[in-house]
Computed example of a mutant assay.
Amino acid sequence: MFRIGLEVFLQQDVPTRFGDRIGFLSNQACTNRYFRYGKDLLQEKLAKRLTCLFSPQHGFYAEKQDNMIESAHHLDLTTGLPIYSLYGEHRKPTEEMFDQLDTLLIDLPDIGTRVYTFMYTMAYCLQAAAQYGKKIVILDRPNPLGGEQIEGNLLRDDCRSFVGMYALPMRHGLTLGELALFFNKEYAIGADLEVVAVQGWRRDMYFSDCPHPWLAPSPNMPTLEAAINYPGQVIWEGTHVSEGRGTTLPFSVFGTPYWQHDEVLAFLQRYPLAGCVLRPLLFEPTSGKWAGNTCTGFQLHIQSRKDFNSYRVGMILLQAAMLVYRQQFEYKKPPYEYEYEKLPMDLILGDRALREALEAGESVVTLEQGWQAELLDYDRRRRCYFLYQ
């Protein structure tokens, strides 16, 4: 029987160690299999013990479209409880917020990628719980990309930000509950932490293998395919190349008005693009980069999830944009996710030297070989926190 952590928790008695006041951090993608919001189900179970709610980036209903668009605290009309925004004036819960609870339940979707901010909202909650003597309980969900494959270089200390607080590879291969255990121990946070595990999930399962509905965790993550593409396609956020925001296929289509299909494809001949096909097309974003302009670009189609390495493909495409169009190519300028000085591309890649090597034309294959030792070390350490086989 497959059950997410929320469904498992709802079937259990609530331990007395959780205290009389319980808060809940979630968003609109956090439902049971019948599309009922966790906040409403928990109020039915806990009654007055549920005292307050919290929301991550984009707001509880994921109504805020873009990065660095903050949401305010407000009252939830169905439960009558306050919703404290953790993507506004504060990204870390304050003492006043945590004064209203003994235990914080966290049920957040994650898409298995280092730069997705929900895991860092969870990490800030761990830090606050350790500071104020509260308990954290993660109601776990599957990693939609599965738990076997990992991709990319580890984050460097000088590239830390709200899209990268800890030394993870781009595709980290852990669930949110496993990440919480990893952060709490590896970085000596020391919070009182428990995880309610998913029942019936295995590491070889993508979300499409799970009998649970896919709900967009954020406004521009409409499909599982977009999530699988994301570890590589998110790189475009650090450039003026459209990553497909403002279209119906974000993180699946990409391009600019000045690209030429044949020029990009000629550069790509030097690299094998395993597990995927690039289909040439034109598209016109209705918002975001190049809004109202016809872009020449491609749609990324995955043919084999096992062979597809999104981050490798993303770096190859980035290098094509850098080198084929040296005069036109531009990086996005700061700010980016509350970092006002460092280049957004360095925060996304997690290593300024990697960006410089790509600019210099170094082979992506050679660059990948250079980080295999640290990736293997990360793989060894993450296995200590596995909750699933």
Rank of each mutant, 00 (worst) to 15 (best):
M1V: 12
R3A: 07
I4Q: 14
G5Q: 10
V8R: 15
Q11A: 15
V14H: 06
P15A: 01
P15K: 03
F24P: 11
N27I: 01
C30I: 10
L41V: 04
L53C: 09
P56D: 06
Q57L: 02
H58F: 09
G59Q: 02
F60C: 04
I69K: 14
S71V: 01
A72S: 15
H73T: 11
H74I: 10
L77R: 14
G88D: 03
G88I: 00
R91T: 05
E95A: 15
E95M: 12
E96K: 15
D99Y: 11
T103G: 09
G112P: 01
R114C: 03
V115Q: 08
T117I: 02
F118C: 01
Q131E: 15
K135S: 09
K135C: 05
I136P: 05
I138C: 06
L139V: 12
D140I: 11
D140V: 09
L145N: 06
Q149F: 01
N153Y: 01
D158T: 06
C159E: 07
C159H: 01
C159L: 04
V163M: 01
M165P: 03
A167R: 13
M170K: 07
H172L: 01
L179T: 08
F183Q: 04
A191E: 05
V196C: 13
V198C: 14
G200Y: 04
M205D: 09
S208G: 08
S208N: 08
S208V: 03
P213F: 04
W214H: 09
P217V: 02
P219I: 09
N220V: 13
M221S: 05
E225L: 03
A226C: 08
A226V: 02
A226Y: 03
Y230Q: 05
G238S: 13
T239W: 11
V241K: 14
S242E: 08
G244I: 14
P250Q: 12
S252L: 08
F254K: 11
W259I: 02
Q260V: 02
D262A: 09
L265Y: 03
A266T: 12
R270W: 00
L273S: 10
A274F: 11
G275W: 00
C276S: 11
P280R: 00
P280Y: 02
T286I: 14
W290C: 07
A291R: 07
G292P: 08
N293W: 04
Q299V: 13
L300E: 04
H301M: 10
I302V: 04
D307K: 11
Y311L: 02
V313N: 05
G314C: 10
M315L: 15
L318P: 12
A321L: 06
M322V: 12
M322H: 09
Y325H: 07
F329W: 07
K333C: 08
K342M: 13
K342R: 15
P344W: 13
I348L: 15
L349T: 14
G350Y: 08
D351F: 02
R352M: 03
L354F: 08
L354A: 06
E359F: 02
G361I: 03
S363K: 00
V365E: 15
G370V: 04
E374M: 03
R380A: 13
R382T: 07
L387G: 02
L387R: 05
Q389I: 01
